[in-house]
Simulated assay, not measured.
Amino acid sequence: MSMTTERQPLTDDAPDRVKVGVAELAVASGDTRLTTSGLGSCVGVAVGDPTAGVAGLAHVMLPEATGDDRGKPAKSADIAVERLIAAVEDAGADPALTEAKLAGGSRMFDFSGVSEGVGERNVERTRQALEDRDVPVVAEDVGGGHGRSLVLVPETWTLTVTSTHQGDETL
């Protein structure tokens, strides 16, 4: 499974930052920051064990698998959630204590004749995939018509959601 590993120190004494691109996922522990930006209709899924200080972040692009993920481990909701949970557990999370936080799933474009946008379907399929695997969603910032950026800190199990329309919100 391909996962992003681009680590960049913010400063000499600052924690590492791992950028998670579209349709990618990454897992970290401690004060390493997992970041993603450009969430419009895409969904950011954070899965973690708050007691273990380990968490992961996926940038889900589509509600359903297309049969060709082109090496992108988090392209669709079902596959992203399955791979993210497995990676978080492999990193030391207790499956009984694992929980999730969601952000994104905006309606960025309004197409007449389409009853439900991609963003809404991404959120719905992601929630269902987590429920199917007994992972509760404990916080979310989804919907609307604006983009978001995320910063996840595993050590504190905090997900900061930033948007130009809503400012910063910590989940």
Rank of each mutant, 00 (worst) to 15 (best):
R133P: 01
T35I: 15
Q128S: 12
G56F: 09
A55L: 09
G143H: 01
H59R: 13
E116Q: 15
E140H: 06
E24M: 12
G105E: 02
P63I: 02
G48M: 08
A80R: 00
G67Y: 02
L102P: 07
V118T: 15
V43Y: 06
T51E: 15
F111W: 11
D68Q: 09
F109S: 11
G113C: 01
D90L: 04
L39M: 03
S149H: 05
A93I: 10
R133V: 04
V137N: 11
G119I: 07
T126E: 03
S29W: 03
G119C: 07
D132W: 07
G30T: 09
S106C: 10
K75F: 05
R148D: 02
I85D: 00
L25F: 09
A46M: 15
S115G: 12
V137S: 13
P136V: 12
E124F: 01
A77M: 01
N122S: 09
G56C: 13
A26G: 12
S115D: 14
K72T: 12
E82N: 04
G117L: 02
N122I: 03
E24V: 00
T66Y: 01
L34F: 02
S115W: 00
A55W: 08
E124Q: 11
V137P: 08
L57A: 08
D132V: 04
R133S: 09
T98E: 07
V88Q: 05
G56L: 11
G56D: 07
A87E: 13
D141H: 13
F109Q: 07
S29D: 14
D132I: 04
T126D: 05
A77R: 01
L97G: 14
T36C: 14
C42G: 05
G119S: 08
D134L: 02
R70Y: 14
V47E: 09
V118H: 07
A74P: 04
G56A: 12
A26S: 15
L97D: 12
K101T: 10
A139P: 07
V137W: 09
A96W: 11
A80I: 00
L84T: 03
L97I: 03
T126S: 07
A77K: 00
G113R: 03
L25K: 06
A86E: 15
S37D: 13
L84F: 07
G104F: 09
T35Y: 03
A74T: 05
D132K: 12
R125G: 00
T66C: 02
L57Q: 05
G48D: 05
V142R: 05
E99H: 06
G30I: 06
P50F: 10
A139S: 14
H146R: 10
R125T: 13
L84N: 04
I85W: 00
S149L: 03
G67I: 02
E131M: 01
C42H: 11
G104T: 12
A91D: 12
E120W: 00
G105M: 10
R125C: 10
M108T: 14
L39D: 02
T51L: 13
V123S: 02
L57D: 03
S37H: 11
A26T: 07
G145C: 05
A52C: 11
E131C: 00
L84Y: 06
R121L: 13
D49P: 10
S149Q: 12
P50H: 07
P50E: 08
G48K: 07
N122L: 06
G53D: 10
S115T: 08
G71Q: 06
